[in-house]
Structures are given as C-alpha cells and as structure tokens.
C-alpha cells in the first residue's frame, strides 16, 4: 500500500528572544501515513509532535524554521512548495483540526460562513451552493438544526458542537489527509467518544488518511492503525497498534503504558517516569532518554542509539529493547 504522506528526516528549529542559538524542536523525524489508515503520533507536551504537523502544513510561527528534511505528499515535497502552491493544498487536499475548539474558531464570524469559506475558495462555489453544501456537512457531522446553526456564532455552541464544526470545516473538501492535533483533549470523555466515532465514520465514507496527534494512549488504542512515539524531538518507537500495546520495546513507551491508570492491582501507586523532559538547548549526549531511564548504562549515556528494526516494521531507538528479565519499576505490563 502506498503512503499518502512521507516525512523524511525532518528537522525544525526555533529562535527565541535574547538567545543566539536556535532550539531544535524536531531532530530527524521520519514517518509515513499509509493511504486510508490512521497513524498516531504520541508523546508528552513539547516533544515536537505539533511542530512536526505544523511544518507539514507550512503553518509554523514566524520564529520557527524547517532546517532540513522532506514531506512527500502526492509526489510533491510540501516543504519546498511556494506559499501560493501550498495554499492550494491547505484546506483542500490536507486539512487540520486543532485542539481548542473554543479559540480555533473566529468569534465574530458565523460558523456557517467559516465552513463555507473553504468551499468558495477551493471548490469555486457561489455563496448559495456553498451554504447548501455546508448545511449538508453540518448534518453529516451531527449538528442538530443544521440550517439554524449555520447562522450561529461560535460562542453560542457547546464545546462538542464547536469541534464538530471544526471537523466539518476540515472534511468539507474531502481531503486526502486529515491532521488532527489533539482533537479531543479539550472535551470531556463522553463527548470525546462521540467525536472519535464521528472521525472514524467520516474516514470510512471518504477514505481520508488521518495523522492523529495525541498524548492519550486510550485514543490511540481506539483510533490508530500505526503509532509513532516521540520523545524530545525524535521518534523513539514505531509499531502497529497491537504490537505496541502487546510488546512495546522502548523504556519510554513502556513507562507511558505503565503510567496508565488501571483497575488492578488495587492499592498500588501509579507508575511515573521520573525526571523531566530535557531542555531543547541542552540535549543529553547519547540517548536522549538516558537521564530518565531506569535501565540506562554507560553506553546509553555516551552513544546515540539508532532506530533499529525489531522485525515486522517495529522500530525502536534503544540499545536494550524490551528485556523481560528486567521489569519496569518492579511492575511490568
């Protein structure tokens, strides 16, 4: 199966006021999204997952810069396209859903107008046709009284409805790729389930591939076919979803899994990964996870591990991938 998006060796840096050296937020990330599949990009805040997606969209803030790498989409390298060429793809062939449905919609424009805008821009529709199509997509994403809601302003809608509007906006051009950056983080759990179901249904109808960015492993389990785990600007593990949940290999992934709350055993403290994420300007030499890793050896601190194939496309950036002899923090998962 061919890949709809292939990111190769992406490096992104950021400048900040008063500091000469640029901080590397993403260092050499490669990932692929197969056609029609959902790929998860997991990691904690600041690991570079959002920056990766914004680079692909060409939406980095002014102080961010792509240093090197490629993002192949339909035979084109998105990172080399001019702004004008990129605009024809954005919102049309690739679209994006953001985390905060509250602040991601323009407060002074009706939601109907905000959705129909893309139709008029890319689809060349007139106002009337765009409105009809917008109401249609509103119904499809489960917005009740779609006709009336067309004229609503974002503040008149609930969080869940707003995210439905965002999804409608993203899906209205039937994009080949949807990048969803923590689409359910700001929503409560029952709404989260509805939104995820909606995304899956839409994917089935349209065949859109999804790059799902999240820090929620529950969402990954529910939605994804393949998963990339990022840590400190690098991919540390890649596996299909069943492999990842059955036999994850990297100590960081194992830590994430172990820190999921579960029903048993009762009374035991939740596992946590000690320490904090390294400073982007002062990366540890050797393995970037070594200062926080329970199993780190001299070699880990001195040498940098490569992303090795453990078989069947299961990649892991560790010298000692999953070693059953040594359970994590006394509790293995």
């Amino acid at each position: 199966m061919s890949n709809i998006l292939e990111i190769k060796n992406l490096c992104v840096s950021f400048a900040s006021d008063g500091v000469k050296e640029r901080a590397m937020a993403v260092s050499g990330v490669s990932l692929a999204v197969p056609e029609g599949k959902t790929v998860g990009l997991v990691g904690e805040s600041g690991c570079g997952k959002s920056v990766t997606s914004l680079s692909v969209m060409g939406l980095l803030s002014d102080n961010g810069r792509v240093e090197s790498g490629e993002a192949l989409f339909g035979g084109q390298d998105l990172l080399r396209l001019s702004d004008r060429e990129m605009r024809r793809i954005r919102g049309n062939r690739i679209s994006m859903i953001f985390q905060e449905p509250m602040t991601s919609l323009n407060p002074v424009i009706t939601v109907g107008k905000q959705v129909s805008e893309a139709l008029r821009l890319h689809g060349g529709m007139d106002a009337k046709a765009a409105k009809a199509r917008t109401i249609e997509i509103f119904e499809k994403v489960g917005i009740p009284e779609a006709e009336r809601r067309f004229k609503s302003y974002p503040h008149q809608l609930s969080g869940g409805l707003r995210q439905r509007v965002m999804i409608g906006m993203a899906m209205v051009m039937r994009p080949a790729l949807l990048i969803a950056d923590e689409p359910t983080t700001a929503l409560d759990v029952s709404i989260e389930a509805q939104i995820l179901r909606l995304m899956r249904d839409l994917q089935r109808d349209t065949g859109t591939s999804i790059l799902l960015i999240t820090h929620n492993l529950g969402v990954v389990a529910e939605m994804c076919d393949e998963v990339y785990v990022m840590y400190a600007g690098e991919v540390v593990e890649r596996a299909n979803v069943t492999t990842l949940f059955d036999t994850c290999a990297h100590p960081y992934t194992r830590g994430l899994m172990a820190s999921l709350p579960r029903m048993t055993p009762k009374g035991q403290r939740l596992y946590n990964i000690r320490g904090t994420v390294p400073n982007l300007r002062a990366m540890p030499s050797g393995c970037r996870f070594s200062p926080r890793c329970e199993f780190a050896t001299e070699m880990c601190r001195g040498e940098k591990p490569e992303l090795n194939d453990l078989g069947g496309g299961h990649l892991c950036r560790c010298f000692y991938p999953k070693d059953d002899e040594r359970p994590l923090g006394g509790i293995d998962r």
Partner: peptide, 26 residues
C-alpha cells in the same frame, strides 16, 4: 497570534484574505 488565525490559514486563505476577513474585524 491567535488560534483562529491559524485555522484561517490552514484553510488555505491568502495572507491578504486572512487579515481582511478574519483579523481586522477582531
């Protein structure tokens, strides 16, 4: 700098339209 401007850009609007339609009114 706000999120909805990023959304507007993610739709593929040109910088002029982003400012004209989405930023100025606010």
């Amino acid at each position: 700098r706000s999120d909805y401007i990023r959304t507007a850009r993610s739709k593929g609007l040109s910088p002029l339209k982003v400012i004209n339609r989405h930023a100025l009114k606010n």
